[in-house]
């Protein structure tokens, strides 16, 4: 087990390295520089600024310097936000995105699995049809439609909730953004759970459990659910990635101080180091989540052996 984790982490390093390389050279291939502004800098000043950030060296050398920095855990200074290192920006803003994302995925898992199980137990009944109709709607209504509509209804017209803002993560400010993020995930998770559950409930070992007289509640909770949520586990990795991109929109609409807004702005302003820092964090996160998903999968399914 530990050896497996170790090996997976080792494999992740070259992947991360490739991601960094691809992103570094793509970013640098873009025309423009972080020091372009309306006022043209004097050539001497520009040369000084470039020298300060080591950007007067050949690109290959800069790349090596950057990699060395990353290996030391130093992501460099931001080129646009004076006096802030990339790590500062990450530390300040990442918790907001993380809190939003984790709350959304937690709520979506609980609600989605419950709805899916309910639908599966009453397959082709009214509950089932209602849940599935809601699920299809949830997949098809994008966050940037639900968000403004909910703001219009619940915040502007009824005034129950604040329209925007973070307010240091007050619960009432989190309700709308988290709901908007969770809705499409609830839809997908309930569909996956329902499909898995229906298949499992038909299997032989469930029939055995029924035959030996176990109460239905116990069969569902102890025997069926465990197998039924397997597809869900492998879905959760990409789902978290989806939440990350989804939060770009949500953070923009609700004006939240998360990482999302830095992503677009920094790319447009050619703030190379900030963009690179974010790519590294996101890529590492995705690799890590995939590993966690595989471990969970093995824990839930005794037939899977990690080697």
């Amino acid at each position: 087990m530990l050896r497996y984790i170790g090996r997976r982490l080792l494999i992740a390093i070259p992947t991360l390295f490739l991601v960094i390389t691809a992103a570094f050279f793509m970013m640098r291939a873009a025309p423009g520089s972080p020091f372009d502004s309306d006022r043209k800098l004097l050539p001497e000043i520009e040369a000084n600024v470039l020298a300060k950030y080591g950007m007067n060296k050949p690109l290959g050398e800069q790349y090596v310097d950057y990699l060395a920095g990353v290996a030391r855990g130093d992501l460099g200074p931001s080129l646009k936000y004076r006096d802030k290192s990339v790590l500062d920006i990450l530390k300040e803003n990442y918790p907001v995105s993380l809190r939003l994302g984790l709350s959304a995925i937690a709520i979506a898992s609980v609600v989605g699995v419950s709805l899916g199980v309910m639908a599966a137990l009453r397959q082709n009944g009214t509950t089932d049809h209602v849940v599935m109709a809601v699920a299809i709607l949830g997949v098809c209504i994008p966050t940037f439609v639900t968000a403004p509509l909910l703001v219009l209804g619940l915040a502007s017209k009824l005034g129950w909730l604040p329209t925007a803002g973070w307010n240091d993560g007050a619960l009432i400010n989190m309700v709308l953004p988290v709901t908007v993020l969770a809705l499409p995930q609830i839809a997908i998770i309930s569909r996956l759970t329902r499909a898995g559950m229906i298949e499992v409930l038909r299997s032989n070992y469930i029939r055995t459990a029924r035959a030996k007289g176990l109460p239905e509640r116990l069969i569902v909770r102890k025997h069926a659910l465990r197998a039924a949520i397997l597809p869900l586990v492998s879905y959760l990795g990409p789902a978290c990635a989806g939440l990350i991109t989804g939060s770009l929109v949500v953070e923009k609409i609700f004006n939240l101080p998360g990482l999302g807004k830095f992503f677009v702005i920094s790319a447009l302003q050619r703030d190379y180091t900030v963009v690179m820092g974010m790519v590294i964090v996101y890529a590492a996160l995705i690799l890590l989540l995939n590993l966690v998903a595989d471990l969970l999968y093995a824990a839930l399914d005794p037939r899977v052996r990690l080697a």
């Binding site: 992947t15 490739l18 991601v19 691809a22 992103a23 793509m26 970013m27 291939a29 873009a30 025309p31 423009g32 990635a241 990350i244 991109t245 770009l248 992503f263 677009v264 790319a267 447009l268 050619r270 963009v275 974010m278 790519v279 996101y282 890529a283 995705i286 690799l287």
Partner: peptide, 22 residues
């Protein structure tokens, strides 16, 4: 398929934003 895996771990939006700004 390794290349595909690497591209998968690039956040989609980042990839497209880079293409757009490039």
């Amino acid at each position: 398929m390794r290349i595909v895996d690497v591209l998968y771990s690039l956040p989609f939006i980042f990839f497209v934003i880079l293409l757009m700004v490039t």
